[in-house]
Structures are given as C-alpha cells and as structure tokens.
Simulated scan of single mutants.
Amino acid sequence: MSERFTMPVAVHLFFVRDREILLLRRWNTGYEDGNYSVPAGHLDGGEEVVTAAIREAREECGVEIAPSDVQVVGVMHRKANDERIDFFVTVARWDGEIVNAEPQKCDDLSWHGLDALPENVIPYVRRAIDNYRERSWFESYGWECSE
C-alpha cells in the first residue's frame, strides 16, 4: 500500500484598516528574508483554520482575535519547490495593540496602502492581496500549464 500524499497548509492574516494592510518583513528565517509578507503560519495538525489564525495573531502580533472576527477570503493551491495550500483570512477587529512579538523573525511590522505595496512583497502574497482587492477567492499559483 502506498503512502497517501500530504502537503503543508498555512494561514495568512490580512489585518486591514483604512485601506491599509499590515505587512511584516521577514528576517533571520532562511525563507524570503528581507521581503514583506503578512502574519502567517502553518497549521499544526488537528487545528481548524480559524483557530490557527487566532494562534498566529497572538504569536506574531501580540493581539487576541475572536473567531467571529476572522473571515476566509481566499484559498491558493501553490506550487514552488513543493505543493501547498494557503488560506487567506481578514481580521475585522482585535484586542490589544499590534506589536512585533517575534523580533527574532521579523525586523519591520508596519501598515502599507493596499494600492501602494512595497516592491519587495513576496510574489504569491502580493497576488493574494490583489485577489482580495478584486474579490477573487481562489487561485492556482506557480503551476505551468501543459497542453
């Protein structure tokens, strides 16, 4: 019997206020260091997407969010070196002040206009933000079409 295929699953948080989105610049992680992303992390297994979003908000931004304030706005089936599923959620409200709770992994946490993102946003994250702005909820990204 062959082993069933599995892939990593992640959740990415779109903290949005006044047409701005919270971005973090990765640092000292070994992946896309020096480039901007959004708060994100892998699901731990046995963990629902909204629960993972709540945990990541606490771990990376030091804030608490209620399940009712999290809305899934996008899904991406992504291929790079491996194959992944990414969920993108908006966070409507949060308790506490957003802080860089992981300074060992992030050297900038700041607000940027949805229409004026820095040049060095990780490409699939930029695409997901564009999809959010266009209200497009699903995309396959990084796959080459073969006919």
Rank of each mutant, 00 (worst) to 15 (best):
V11W: 11
K105H: 14
G113H: 03
Y132F: 15
E97T: 09
Y141D: 02
A53V: 09
N120I: 03
F14D: 02
E60V: 01
E56M: 06
W111H: 07
R84D: 01
D69F: 02
E60A: 00
S68C: 05
R127W: 00
V72E: 13
V16K: 02
Q104S: 04
V75P: 00
A80M: 13
K105E: 14
I21R: 03
N120M: 06
G96K: 07
R133Y: 07
P118E: 08
I65F: 13
Q104R: 11
G30W: 14
H42F: 12
V11F: 06
E97I: 06
V50G: 01
V75I: 14
S37M: 13
S37V: 13
G34N: 06
V99I: 15
V75Y: 04
R55G: 00
R58N: 12
W111E: 03
F14I: 04
V91W: 05
P8Q: 12
H42D: 12
G74V: 03
E32V: 03
V16R: 05
T51N: 11
G45V: 09
K79W: 11
E83Y: 13
F138Y: 15
G142C: 02
F5C: 01
E144V: 00
V125F: 08
D33Q: 09
V73Y: 01
E59D: 10
N35K: 15
R93P: 09
